[in-house]
Nucleic acid binder design. Structure first.
Lengths: 337, 337
DNA sequence: CTGAAAGCGCTAACAG
DNA sequence: CTGTTAGCGCTTTCAG
C-alpha cells in the first residue's frame, strides 16, 4: 500500500521527474511518444500527485476556509452552498468551520488554526468585534460577512440591513398595518445585525407617522424558532395587540407563525408576518412566508472577488461591499389589497 | 509579511530547531529557562507552525473529507453538523465536498482521496454503485453512508430502512388508516433507499392484511418539496382516495402537507402524514410532522469509529453497521386515538 | 536534555 | 524539449 511517487513513475517510464511533472500538468510541449509512455506508467502505478507536497512547494493550498456559526442553520447552509459552488467555479476547495458562536473558536479560526492551511478565510463573526479582529494581524487574506464587525483594514460584505428592514416595514404599512411588532431582540446581543434591522423598522414607522411603542419590540432568549415562538406567545399572554410583525430571521418567523396559528389567529388576516433570509422554509410554511431576501449568490461572488484580490497581493484598506436584497412577497404578508 | 519559520524562532532564541519544536509541542522535558526564552521568541515573532509542512513531514493531515449530495438539504446539513462536532471531538477538521449527485464529481471525490489531502473520507453516494466504488481501489480509508452502495470490502453505516418504513406504516395502521399511500418513487431512481422504504411499507400493509394498491404509490420527478407537492396534487386530481401517507423524506412530507392544506383536507383528520429524517422542519410545520428519526449522532459516531480503525491500519473486510432509529410522533400522525 | 542533518514529495530555476 | 538540483518548513532519528 506504499504510496507511489513522482519519482517512481519517472523510473518506470525511464524519464526524469520533470517530464512526468509536465505530463501531469498537461504542459503543451512534450513529445507525444514520451507523453504516452509516461501516461502508461502513471496508469500502471495508479499515481496520484500528493497535494500536500505540492502545496509546500508552491505555497498555494487551493483551499479557503469558511467559518460560520452553525452549519445547519438554514441561512448558513444555503450560503455555504453558494460559497461552495463559487469555490468550485474558481478552483478552490472549501473547508467549513463551525464556530457555534463561541468566541474562543472564532479567535482560533483567525489565528493559529489556519496557518498555511488555506489561501484565505471567509468569516461570519458573531462574538468578535472589529477591535478583536483588527488586533490579530492578518497573515492570511480575510473577508468578513455580516454586520458584527467591520475593521477598517478588512474587507467586508453585507446587505443594507437598515434599508431592508425599512422595505419590510413599509410593506406592512402599505397593507394597512399600524401596530407592527419587531421580533426579536436578544438579551445579550452582540451582533450588529439586529440593531440595524431594528433601526430600519423604527425609521419605517417614523416616516409613516406611527408612534414607536416599546411594548411591540419583542425580545427572545436565543436565535431559535422555539425562542421566537415563546416570545410571541408571551406577548399574546400579556395582551399585547399587533397586526404585523417584522422578524429578524426566518426561524423567528416560523416560531411566530406557529404561535399565531396555535392561538387561533389568522395570518395574514389578523397578523401579517415578514421573515428574513428567504430560506427554503419560507416557501413551505402555511401560509408561505414573505421574507427579506439577501442575494446569497451575490454575497458569495463578492466575497470571493475581494478574497482573490487579497490573495493576489492587494494590501490596501478594507473594502466594504453592499450586496442587493429584495422582498419576496408570499402569503403571510401579500401585497396591499 | 514574510512568514516566520521555525528556524527564525530558533535563531532569535539562540537554540536549535528541535528545541523550538519541543516547546511548540509541549514536550515535557525542556528546561524551564529555555522554554521561556523560546516562548518569548515565538510570541515576539508571532510564529505559527505551517501545517502543510507538518503534514508533509508526518504524513498525517488531520483532516477528513465529507462528501454529500447537497450541503443545504436539511438532512445533510444536520448530519454535517454532527460529523463536524464529532470531528472536533476527535481532533480532525472536515472538508466538505458537495457532489450534487453528479457521478463525475462523485468519482472525483474518490480518486482525490488518494491525493494525500485527507486521512479519510466519509461519503454518501447517490449515483455510484457498489461496483463503481469497488473498482477504485482505496489508498485512503473510506466509510460509506446511505444505501446506494455497499461494496464487500468497504465499511458502511446506515439505518434499517425496511424496518423503519415498517414502523411508520404500522403507526398509521394503528391509527386506523387503511388506504395508505407512499410518496415518492422517483422515475430514474438509483438510490437503494427508496426501494427499501417502499419494501417496508409494503410489508406493513401485508402483515395487516391490507391489499397493495399500485395507485397509492406516488411517483415524483425529483427530490424536492415542490415535486412532492405536485405528486400529491396530481393524485388528488385523479381522484385517488387515501387516509395516510408515508413520505420518503421530510421535504416530500412538507410538500404533501402543503397540498393537503391548500386542497382543504385536514391533517391528520382526513389524511395522516409521516415524514422521514426528522429534520428541524418537522417541529415547525403546521401541523407538526411525525417523522422517522435516524440517530444522526450515532451515525456520525459510527462512521468515525470505523474510519479511525481504518486509519489505524485495519485492512479487513467491510463492516456494515446498522444504526438505530425511532419514530418521532407529532401532530400530523398522532398516536392511535 | 539538546543539536545536526536527513528526509517527506513536489515544484521551478537553470542548464543542457 | 528534457534533466538536475535546490529548496518549501517541519519532524525525527541519531549523536552528543
Amino acid at each position: 500500500m506504499a504510496r507511489v511517487r513522482l519519482i517512481d513513475v519517472a523510473e518506470l517510464a525511464g524519464v526524469s521527474m520533470k517530464t512526468v511533472s509536465n505530463v501531469v500538468h498537461n504542459y503543451p510541449h512534450v513529445a507525444p511518444a514520451l507523453r504516452e509512455k509516461v501516461q502508461a506508467a502513471i496508469d500502471q502505478l495508479g499515481y496520484r500527485p500528493n497535494l500536500t507536497a505540492r502545496r509546500l512547494a508552491t505555497g498555494k493550498t487551493g483551499m479557503i476556509a469558511l467559518a460560520i456559526p452553525e452549519i445547519d442553520h438554514p441561512y448558513f447552509s444555503e450560503l455555504s452552498r453558494h460559497i461552495a459552488e463559487e469555490a468550485t467555479r474558481r478552483g478552490y476547495r472549501v473547508i467549513i468551520e463551525q464556530t457555534l458562536s463561541d468566541p474562543v473558536v472564532e479567535r482560533a479560526v483567525l489565528s493559529d488554526r489556519e496557518a498555511g492551511l488555506v489561501d484565505g478565510v471567509i468569516f461570519h463573526p458573531v462574538r468578535m468585534g472589529s477591535l478583536d479582529i483588527a488586533k490579530l494581524d492578518a497573515a492570511t487574506p480575510l473577508v468578513l460577512l455580516g454586520e458584527a464587525a467591520m475593521p477598517v483594514m478588512t474587507d467586508h460584505v453585507m446587505i443594507d440591513n437598515v434599508s431592508a428592514a425599512l422595505d419590510a416595514t413599509r410593506h406592512l404599512l402599505a397593507r394597512g398595518c399600524r401596530r407592527i411588532a419587531f421580533l426579536g431582540v436578544i438579551a445579550a446581543d452582540i451582533t450588529g445585525s439586529t440593531n440595524q434591522r431594528l433601526l430600519g423598522y423604527q425609521q419605517g414607522l417614523l416616516e409613516a407617522g406611527v408612534e414607536l411603542n416599546p411594548e411591540l419590540v419583542f425580545t427572545a432568549s436565543e436565535f431559535t424558532a422555539e425562542a421566537g415562538l415563546r416570545s410571541v406567545a408571551k406577548a399574546l399572554e400579556r395582551g399585547v395587540r399587533f397586526d404585523g410583525v417584522v422578524c429578524r430571521d426566518d426561524r423567528f418567523a416560523i416560531g411566530a407563525l406557529k404561535t399565531l396559528h396555535d392561538s387561533g389567529r389568522s395570518v395574514p388576516g389578523d397578523v401579517a408576518v415578514v421573515g428574513w433570509d428567504n430560506t427554503f422554509l419560507a416557501a413551505y410554511t402555511s401560509p408561505t412566508l414573505t421574507s427579506v431576501a439577501p442575494r446569497k449568490t451575490a454575497i458569495a461572488r463578492a466575497a470571493f472577488d475581494l478574497l482573490e484580490e487579497r490573495i493576489a497581493g492587494y494590501r490596501g484598506v478594507g473594502r466594504h461591499m453592499i450586496v442587493g436584497h429584495s422582498l419576496e412577497v408570499r402569503e403571510s404578508a401579500p401585497l396591499a389589497p
